[in-house]
Design a protein around this nucleic acid. Sequence first.
RNA 1: GGGAGAGUGUCCCGAGCGGCAAAGGGGGCGGACUGUAAAUCCGCUGGCUACGCCUUCGUAGGUUCGAGUCCUACCUCUCCCA
Length: 418
Amino acid sequence: MSAYKSDFLNVLAERGFIHQMSEPEALDARAKAGKITAYIGFDCTAASLHVGSLLPIMMLYWLQQTGHRPIALMGGGTTRVGDPSGKDESRRILTDAMIEQNLAGIRAIFSKFLKFEGAGGNAIMANNADWLNKLNYIDFLRDVGKHFSVNRMLAFDSVKMRLERQQELSFLEFNYMVLQAYDFVELNKRTGCILQMGGSDQWGNIVSGIDLGRRMTNAQLFALTSPLITTSSGAKMGKTAAGAVWLDANLVSPYDYWQYWRNTEDGDVARFLKLFTILPLDEIARLGALQGQDLNEAKKVLATEATALVHGRAAANEASETSRKTFEEGLFAGALPTVEIARAELERGIGVLTAFAEKTGLVSSNGDARRQVKAGGLKVNDVAVSGEKMMLTPKDLTTDGVIKLSLGRKKHVLLKPV
RNA sequence: GGGAGAGUGUCCCGAGCGGCAAAGGGGGCGGACUGUAAAUCCGCUGGCUACGCCUUCGUAGGUUCGAGUCCUACCUCUCCCA
């Protein structure tokens, strides 16, 4: 089974994190011989990270677990430029204050996976704005720019595609690759980092960094990319109707997060268990072998384990229990998302449309609520709403003192008078 | 610099003789079937104090009873010539 000599590469390979590597043997030897430092770059355009960032985070996690040093690099500087391999819409420029704020939120997430300080803590969080913002253009051109061959840059897929399709490629974007390459070299100088990881779309950028390192400092650098993760039916991960699946409990509750994983497609369960939980592989093999309805057990394990990593074991168990009561027993469960309303307002009576649209946000507007009533998609205390004129009053309170509102079979919110 | 096109429902792609809340997809949501899955089928997919009212087709004006549609200027993008 052990294709590699180092624990690090073995773990990543067995769990399905590896798509491409540069010089696998040499990297394997370095990882076997001693502690290596590796980094992954992250966007800091938002105040939180979402499920799409989970894969790289897990790579850093395993890096640290196998005895090495991870660096999470925030793209405070490169975010301003925009990667041409992505979309062509230029990114917003964030103020330093906003970036600082975002960094704080993101750091909180990283600290659940990586140990930055204390015993066994050696992870580093860096921001490339620290060095990119200070660059002097002429110096940069002379020191770094001279190592880049435009002829070669034009041959990179990300650039070539744009040119072939005769799509606009601004000079700004063209420089993204140069800056990212420079990041790698800078991190190598500062911390001895020798490996950059990232998604498979980053391969070209990473290799540019390796090249630049060889030319500028004669350093031997490495690349490791992960496959692009999509669901079995081909959709990108991390998007739901409500938007991105954030890792921040204030944006997506642990219960909703648990539900996201619980609804994984059959064909993805084993793969996701390997990528997004830290369960031992033999346990995953057992769960992945389940068939048909039994596979639901594996999905619950996936949901609980994945939630525990981000929100903690207690929150994961609570989400699991709430889900069990809600779906398997059809009962109320206190941990469902709860919206508080004024008791006096309830005594006056609240229209169902208002309750669903304004109070809970389960539907986006009164019009939407009306449509859902017609479609039979709204329920109050598990009874379908019969007409849009219906009023909610204290009579609708259950013995638990709440009113349960449901959209479809899966989305539930409790109204609680205070 | 000259010439030719394009910009449509705030998720995307895309039709649109001057009567348009605007065809058709995709996506999404709801329903049926199931296993809280997938596939399939059905319905819905601007807002509101709702048999009516308001806001939508790059921006700003104009023609007209009436403009997504015609005219003018401007913005952005693409192509061709220089």
